[in-house]
Design a protein around this nucleic acid. Structure first.
Length: 362
DNA sequence: AATCCGGGGTA
DNA sequence: TACCCAGGATT
């Protein structure tokens, strides 16, 4: 049959038709608010849909508009990101919200060139928000789209190389329908996550199988080409869970410190390695005999894996029996502070292990 | 171009 | 284990 359509036009039509049938009902798809779509796209960076949903609901309830996010205390914003990872995302998001409030009257600019200048907005997020919120025909090329397009085109370009992403963006720009760019971008990603999966893709269910070079040639196990990442480095560290009891209600308090404002887990809270008394730093373990009649007790060991780093962790318990002067670098967290401030996941695991151990001892 | 930056699901 | 995930900033 002769339809008069090019292969890429058929691709777009078949993909959209499929998307309208299988489209999932996701919280951010119920909103037309550019800010809500923006928040969802930041959360979805390197993060699965199922993980994001509860964070998105909680975040939008607490910060329903750009102005309310801009005016919120940073510690509150970080607390609503606790456990989601890549914490610079939310610090950049609040910084960008403050800029939008000041420069654009609290309205997300409907201009890709202005929007991408905001903190935390790269080429993918620019395309996603502009196309979904404002129906602007910009490509939104993420890991899913790179996999789908290299397979469909039969390209052996290394998707780990930067120029491959540029090549795919230029190609998508020629395919993207001018009247429904947001749906098209979402459809590409949906196809990548639901059908054109990294391993054993479901080609029998694929709506764009017709002119797919990978399906035609049986290259499913060859494409996409991606160079391997270097292996993680390993760091060994120990931390101390130092406790005392509050005099007025008997609640347990734990000694914590705030991490530096840049780098890994910036501004999150953690258990200390050192204790500060009289302006000097001492290792908690070596000093513990001053505080506790018992030796420090190793109560937990484990590993925590980051993107490019693995921690081998030892956790010791030290009970503070007499009151000692603690330097300003450290502070005590009771239940109230724990509920208010963001704690790094690696240490939350240790805190829970500590509580479980305390329960068993009762 | 290479590295940093989290945490969790999956084969 | 190894890979991947609706990536961006920094060097």
């Amino acid at each position: 049959m002769e339809t008069g359509l090019s292969n890429t036009e058929k691709f777009a039509l078949q993909l959209l038709e499929w998307f309208y049938k299988v489209k999932r009902d996701l919280p951010w798809r119920r909103s037309r608010d550019p800010y809500a779509i923006w928040v969802s796209e930041i959360m979805l960076q390197q993060t699965r849909v199922e993980t994001v949903i509860p964070y998105f609901e909680r975040f939008m309830q607490r910060f329903p508009s750009i102005n309310e996010l801009a005016d919120a205390p940073e510690e509150d914003v970080l607390k609503h990101w606790e456990g989601l990872g890549y914490y610079s995302r939310v610090r950049n998001l609040q910084s960008a919200a403050r800029e939008v409030k000041a420069e654009y009257g609290g309205v997300v600019p409907a201009d890709p060139e202005r929007f991408i200048k905001l903190k935390g907005i790269g080429s993918y997020t620019k395309g996603a928000v502009m196309s979904i919120a404002y129906q602007i025909a910009e490509p939104a090329v993420d890991g899913n789209v790179m996999r789908v397009m290299t397979r469909w085109c039969g390209w052996y370009d290394d998707i780990a190389a930067g120029k491959t992403k540029t090549k795919i963006e230029e190609f998508v720009r020629t395919v993207i329908p001018r009247d429904q760019p947001g749906d098209f971008n979402q459809a590409l990603m949906e196809l990548g996550s639901q059908v054109c999966t990294p391993k054993s893709p479901s080609c029998e269910r694929c709506p764009v199988q017709l002119n797919c070079m990978t399906f035609a040639n049986g290259w499913q196990n060859e494409l996409p080409v991606k160079t391997k990442l270097k292996s993680d480095r390993v760091e060994s560290r120990w931390v101390a869970v130092v406790t005392r009891r509050r005099a007025y209600d008997g609640e347990v308090e734990v000694l914590v410190r705030q991490r530096p404002d840049t780098g890994l887990l910036a501004k999150l809270w953690e258990f200390p390695h050192e204790i500060f008394t009289g302006g000097e730093a001492h290792e908690v373990i070596s000093e513990s005999l001053r505080f506790n009649s018992d030796h420090p007790k190793l109560f937990w060991q484990g590993t925590h894996v980051f993107s490019h780093l693995k921690w081998q962790l030892d956790a010791y318990y030290v009970e503070l029996l007499e009151d000692v002067e603690i330097g300003a670098e450290l502070t005590w967290f009771g239940p109230e502070e724990r509920a208010k401030y963001a704690f790094a996941q690696a240490f939350t695991v240790i805190w829970q292990a500590f509580e479980n151990r305390a329960l068993e001892a009762m």
